[in-house]
Design a protein around this nucleic acid. Structure first.
Lengths: 226, 226
DNA sequence: CTTCAATAACCAATATTTTCATAGTAATAT
DNA sequence: ATATTACTATGAAAATATTGGTTATTGAAG
């Protein structure tokens, strides 16, 4: 399984990572909530192990955020022993289970397996593609930025989906043409440019957030920061 | 919810029963494992709270028995504090969650709600599918809107059921075709469109409520608000 | 076991709506 | 200075809605 661990205490994080890797799991550890949340949104994990006491962002808030963004990945909270109120809050925020620290590793493995068993029948492919504060829901085919829903036409959607699935990668016009329009080559028209413009008008114009679709002159387009 | 409690300590059993009844649940308490197992098999509970330390039959054995007999009801185990091995065994026996005694009642309620939420997708044999002010009775195959009964043909029903089971999700014509008409279906025709039209005439035309079936040009149809 | 009528399923033609692609011009980068 | 990209208006094209008619299916009656 691919597991995301969000834990600020490096010793605990390393301990979990080592133990899980011995059980042949793939583990990524983040020491801060912001980075962890970002990772949870951008990658498709089978499980998230989340410490509730984090610097920067509260674990419960993080949990609620993820659920609000329709991240369905099972979440296992780590709490201090007897922190009853935290446990209640965490479960209500959408966490699936908890484990009080300190814990026996065998119990972590048992709970992890129970969660996997419970969730796997539903493990549907990631519904939300996200980058920065932009989200694209592949079920509703709607985009969302700054809490505002944006409707897209079929071509706009296909183009945005392509960009979001290749964030950071410069996509040539030839590649976009083939992926979105299914054509061999760009026929000498500026159709792609026009659609990039449509998209920019819908997802950038009027929003306070950063610019997301960047032009690389002579090369193509990228979705990235900066 | 209808809850079965299997707990030999009468004081604890009574405490749970009283607390749950205050939260408007229907509770039955059995003090012995044999009787409890019998009850679990004969009635349809929404949740089973099971003490692991029981006279007569072991809680873990009971749990394994129920799962072997394909009783899918969520099971919440009660264990002594720090009985790690029991917890591991219990989860492996098919229990869904555990609670260490003594526990705060608020935690029991929280876990119970989490379990119900988690499990609800399983109980999808709901008799009534509903969205907005539209209902579809899967037993009588009749729809109802604004207090008025609507009869549907077989295809209309299948289509409406599909839409109601996937509210908010855009369903492509290919998907609809496969779900309602089966694999081999002549896609050269507009039959799906025609049936959407039939449905709209029956469940939207003449009703004051909002539009429910929305077309997403180039993508398919959705049942949603707005 | 037929026949008939009623209903359902389907298809195709036409009307309507929405989206798309083009081309022309403006703006920007190299 | 020129190549490249951004923006915009518009007619064409594609997708969808609607309607009328044809073929299946079903169920009751003869």
């Amino acid at each position: 399984m691919k597991i995301l661990v969000i834990e600020d205490e490096t010793k605990v994080g390393a301990f979990i990572k080592r133990g899980l890797e011995e059980h042949h799991h793939q583990v990524e550890v983040y020491a801060d909530g912001i980075g962890g949340q970002q990772a949870a949104l951008e990658h498709d994990y089978d499980l998230i192990i989340l410490d509730l006491m984090l610097p920067g962002i509260n674990g419960i808030t993080l949990c609620r955020n993820l659920r609000a963004l329709e991240v369905g990945t099972p979440i296992l909270m780590l709490t201090a022993l007897n922190a009853t109120q935290d446990i209640v809050d965490g479960l209500n925020a959408g966490a699936d289970d908890y484990l009080a620290k300190p814990f026996h590793f065998s119990e972590l493995i048992a709970r992890l397996q129970a969660l996997a068993r419970r969730k796997s029948p539903f493990h549907q492919d990631q519904a939300i593609l996200a980058f920065a504060d932009l989200q694209l829901n592949t079920n509703t085919k709607m985009a969302r930025r700054g809490g505002q829903d944006i409707t897209l036409t079929a071509k706009e959607y296909a183009l945005l989906e392509l960009l979001l699935k290749n964030t950071g990668k410069v996509l040539s016009r030839a590649l976009i043409s083939e992926a979105v329009w299914g054509l061999e080559f760009d026929t000498g028209t500026n159709t792609i440019d026009v659609y990039v413009n449509y998209l920019r008008n819908k997802i950038e114009k009027g929003f306070s957030g950063e610019k997301l679709i960047h032009t690389v002159v002579g090369m193509g387009y990228v979705m990235k920061h900066k």
